[in-house]
């Protein structure tokens, strides 16, 4: 190990977080949010299998909104954002494609959240299962989709920060 020099502690005491650190932390938080969403859905299905006292069970239908949200998130975050705000002109074909694919991604995300509410309403509320342990499975589904959406929003904000940084430099 090389000697540190004049530092007493390993970590510097006062160090303003630079934009790179902030971005890393935000990416970590986004990953954590996505994990929360995923495990909420898993929790709903495991709960329905084990300690569920009612006749309502989680089937594949409950997974469809989450799958839609995940697909939308993957589509949105794999687009190169530089293509969107490109100056129009010769590269307009690529820009048009980027807009179309991004539209599909946002639609998938919206379908995920709407589907979560749809499952909650059609499967639980309409049929009169509005007591708490049973209703929890539907609420967890909605919460999972919200978590995925928040994670996606966070990643979007991060990429826009990057855009500003490169523009200002």
């Amino acid at each position: 190990m090389s000697s540190e020099g004049e530092h007493l502690f390993r970590f510097p005491i006062i160090k303003l977080p630079n934009s790179r650190t902030v971005r890393s932390v935000m990416v970590y938080i986004a990953g954590a949010l996505y994990a929360i969403g995923f495990w909420l859905v898993v929790d709903a299905s495991v709960y329905s299998k084990t300690v569920n006292a009612s006749v309502v069970h989680v089937t594949f239908v409950d997974w469809i909104p989450f799958i839609c949200s995940t697909l939308g998130m993957m589509v949105i975050n794999s687009i190169d954002k530089g293509q969107l705000f490109n100056s129009e002109g010769f590269g307009s074909g690529l820009q048009w494609q980027a807009r179309l694919v991004l539209f599909v991604g946002f639609s998938l995300l919206a379908v995920g959240i709407a589907g979560g509410f749809l499952v909650l309403i059609l499967k639980f509320l309409i049929k009169g299962f509005n007591s708490m342990p049973t209703l929890g499975m539907g609420l967890e589904n909605v919460g999972a989709n919200f978590c995925v959406m928040l994670s996606c929003i966070l990643l979007w904000i991060i990429q826009n920060i990057e855009e500003d940084q490169t523009l200002s430099l």
Partner: peptide, 28 residues
């Protein structure tokens, strides 16, 4: 600008995302 404002590669960012995901999974 190697200290602040350097743009990380998407792969590194995806690895950070995966780390946050896995740690939260282990907690949950």
């Amino acid at each position: 600008y190697d200290d602040d404002g350097s743009v990380e590669s998407p792969f590194v960012e995806f690895c950070h995302f995966l780390t946050g995901c896995l740690v939260m999974s282990g907690t949950l």
